[in-house]
Amino acid sequence: MSTAALQSSRPHGTAAPGPSFLRVLNSEFIKFRTLLSTLILVGSTVLVMVGFAALNAWGIGQFSEASRNDPQAAAAFAAQGADLTAGIPTSGIAFAQLIIGSLAVLLMSSEFTTGMARSTFSAVPKRTPAFIAKLLVVTACAFVVTVASSLLAYVAATPILDNYGFDIDLGSDHSRRLLLVSGVYVAAVAAIGMSLGTLLRNSAGGIMSLVGLFFVVPIAFQLIPGEFFEEARKYLPDSLFERIVTAAPAEDALEVWQAWTWLGVWVVVPVAAAMIILKKRDV
């Protein structure tokens, strides 16, 4: 420990690089990948997606075996045909969205709970670039992990389906749409999660709100009788996702473009609120 090492580096007064957006993005990516919790949560997402797909494939196979003696069931089964198996690779998405969403909450809330925010926002005192950079890292990760784990799930489910004489046509329009929309949807959930983490600055509170929104509220709306709740349920993010990917919508369903718009609102409102609050509030 000597002070001699200080005699170094640049002469003062020269224009030295500051926090440009790409540099901040690079910094946020370093922060993202150097936490064990990130790796664990991404790993569990892959496991859940692959596990659910395998289980689902096996279940469909078993059901088809059982329905062979029942001509009515067999007919109903055949009518659904390829759509049934197309959903297999993304069948774990209800859980994947919660895990990735929680990861997104944690990545921001931990900045505040650990005090890291003071370092982050000393380096990037305008704050907004750091938020956008983190948002980009989180949503890109959510998309890639969802699509990649769906593809892995496909690989895992195919031999199981093969046993029962089924297969998944990954090239079909429906399959491709499911894959991409799932990725975009989980990215949207991650954006909402990160906003909750920014607004609440608390890991437990953020995750509970996210679980509430994506797990408790949809169920509650389904259980509570009344037209209002039935109608309102259509506008919840998970219903919007279902609407976008379904090939055969119900009669009173929203148009696809409406569903996309509402999903956009679900993302833009919390993200904008988070950015404004982050800029205004003391760290």
């Binding site: 690079n26 910094s27 936490l35 919790s37 931990s110 650990t114 890291m116 003071r118 370092s119």
Partner: peptide, 27 residues
């Protein structure tokens, strides 16, 4: 340069990675 609080670090990260992430913002 500031030291405002010795706990302005995510404790799950290594010291090197913490400094590396901070350094990255300014190349």
């Amino acid at each position: 340069g500031s030291l405002l609080d010795a706990k302005a670090v995510h404790t799950g990260r290594t010291a090197y990675n913490h400094l590396l992430a901070m350094a990255a913002t300014h190349s």
